[in-house]
Every structure is written in structure tokens, then in C-alpha cells.
């Protein structure tokens, strides 16, 4: 049996050529953040367990192999990561563009999805397939669920389960129909929802948001103050 590693054992990895020391068990994303290299994420939230679904945090690893997801890959001693790897960027960028192509309108400029789209300098999606029809649930006094903006990243469901523990949200449908629902499609109020708002707080697209914020966002849009990066 190998000698036991002390709990605080450190590893050395190289992010874009810079050596960083990270605790054993750290992910590539954590190492990249420590090195100050930006890696875009979409399904990731510090408050939640690792998930690794969206493939937006792809980075290259020196020594071959396809790009890896930074948020779920553990660091290995001596690993050399290229966060600007062309293949990784192309894969991630196309993924985001595909996500955007299903939405009936660009995400509001303040959302994480809009930020990621700006990072990849994505304009109007090249693919003009089916788009979601507006389907808004306003029955809750604070929360609004805009189903058409859901990208099935699962963050709201995981926040509900892992942070609050209300288990009120569920993933529904498959493929293009994949979405999120409260309770048995009964809305927040008739589910086990405790109105904590963790779902709205983590949502990267405002598919779940607050009435007041929605009013504010549309006010800004109609006043022509919309940020240029929104498309």
C-alpha cells in the first residue's frame, strides 16, 4: 500500500505555462482560477457539487488527447493545461452557439450566458432551427419561470436539492423539449418550493428570475440602453 499522503498535500501544475501549487484533489478549473486564467463556465456554480454537463469549460492538455472539461477534471502532478487551446475553444464556442440557437431571443446582457457569448464573440447563431415558444409562468408572487429561456444546465435543480434541500424542481422532456418544472408541472406554489430563490440566483439565463427584475430588464431594453454585447 502506498504511503498515505498528508491531507494538505500539494500538486504542481502548469496553467498556460505558469506553475501553480494546488491542494491535491483540486480541479483544473480551480487551478486555472488560481493562476488567473479565465475559463468560461455555464453549468458550474461554486455552491454546487461538480456536474460537468455543458462542455463550455473545455481546455487543452499538453501531451495529446481531446480537450477536457476543466470543472470536473482533477489535477495531476505536472499536468500542463492550455486554456486557449484552439480545439477546446472551438468545441466550447460551438456548444454555446447551439444553445443560443434554440432561444427565441438573446439572453439579457447581465446574464452569465450573455457573458459567455460575448467571450466567444458569438453573433446571431449560424443555425436557424427550431426555437422555443414563449411559455411564462407568473403564478408565484416573486418568481417567474420563462421556460423558453431554459438551457437545461440543471443549476436550478441542483441548487434546490444541494443548497436548500426543497427538491421542488425536476428536469423534464428530452432533446429539444428538455426543460425544468416545479413540482408535477404545477408551478412553484403547489410544489415543495419554499421560495428561497436559490434557483433564480443561480440561473445563467434568467429562465428563472424575479418579477421586479424582469420589469427592470425590459425597462432597460425599451429605453435603448441594452448592452452591445447582447448579440
Amino acid at each position: 500500500m502506498a504511503p498515505e499522503q498528508p491531507a494538505a498535500a500539494q500538486l504542481e501544475v502548469f496553467i498556460d505555462g505558469e506553475a501553480v501549487q494546488v491542494p491535491k484533489g483540486s480541479t483544473v478549473l480551480e487551478a486555472a482560477r488560481q493562476a488567473g486564467s479565465y475559463v468560461p463556465t455555464l453549468c458550474f456554480d461554486d455552491r454546487l457539487e461538480q456536474f460537468g454537463a455543458c462542455r463550455v469549460c473545455m481546455v487543452g492538455v499538453e501531451g495529446g488527447g481531446p480537450p477536457i472539461a476543466a470543472c470536473t477534471t482533477p489535477c495531476v502532478e505536472g499536468m500542463r493545461i492550455d486554456t486557449t487551446d484552439a480545439t477546446a475553444r472551438r468545441v466550447a464556442s460551438n456548444t454555446v452557439e447551439l444553445v443560443l440557437s434554440e432561444l427565441p431571443r438573446p439572453p439579457a446582457p447581465h446574464t452569465e450566458l450573455a457573458g459567455v457569448a460575448r467571450f466567444f464573440e458569438l453573433g446571431e447563431p449560424r443555425w436557424r432551427g427550431a426555437r422555443h415558444e414563449p411559455d411564462e409562468d407568473q403564478r408565484h408572487p416573486y418568481l417567474v419561470l420563462q421556460h423558453e429561456m431554459c438551457i437545461s444546465c440543471g443549476r436550478c435543480i441542483r441548487a434546490c436539492d444541494e443548497v436548500q434541500g426543497a427538491f421542488a424542481l425536476t428536469a423534464t422532456g428530452r432533446g429539444f423539449s428538455a426543460n425544468v418544472t416545479a413540482g408535477l408541472d404545477s408551478g412553484f406554489r403547489d410544489s415543495t418550493c419554499v421560495s428561497c430563490g436559490a434557483c433564480a440566483d443561480t440561473c445563467p439565463t434568467d429562465a428563472i428570475t424575479e418579477h421586479l427584475l424582469l420589469d427592470l430588464t425590459s425597462e432597460i431594453a425599451t429605453n435603448g440602453e441594452e448592452g452591445e454585447g447582447s448579440r
Binding site: 416573486y142 421560495s195 428561497c196 430563490g197
Partner: peptide
């Protein structure tokens, strides 16, 4: 995190 009182 916070609850429906603090947040809303």
C-alpha cells in the same frame, strides 16, 4: 444562500 425573507 438566503431565504424568502432575506431575499424577497
Amino acid at each position: 444562500h438566503t431565504c424568502l425573507k432575506g431575499r424577497f
